[in-house]
Amino acid sequence: MVKRLSVLDANRCTGCQSCMFACSRRFGVGGLAYSAIHVRSVGGIEHGFVVIVCRACPDPPCAKVCPVDALKVRVGGGVILDAAKCIGCGFCAKSCPYGAIFWNERENKPNICVYCGYCAGYCPHEVIALEELG
């Protein structure tokens, strides 16, 4: 079964961003340049947080707008990036209504979630989890 990351309860999120750091660390680096998950406040920390992750859409707009077919639709939903093909136009990021495609300034390419769930292992408050798509 294919999997995707799911936000179980954003109200439990404390904004620690451990997930964001985990995502970059998965690529063997510190900082946040390679993160494909984002946590920000709902317009002010007093109102809580938004956790932005790729929903693994069955019919993803990001793949449709890619002019060079660098984003392939994954069987079951979501996309897979072929970085060698990507020309860094940024259309994919603009097309995502959730803003779940983040820009990697260093590579000039999108950070696309690979649905590995590494980030979920570092959520201390059970906000996110990897779940089966079905």
Binding site: G30, L32, A33, Y34, R106, Y122
Partner: peptide, 25 residues
Amino acid sequence: GKTMISVSNVKRYRELYDKIYTTSI
């Protein structure tokens, strides 16, 4: 900002990170 901070020994970095993270929670 959103920069990348490089680490030379990735394996050890992840191991030590996990040790500190787990101890703290």
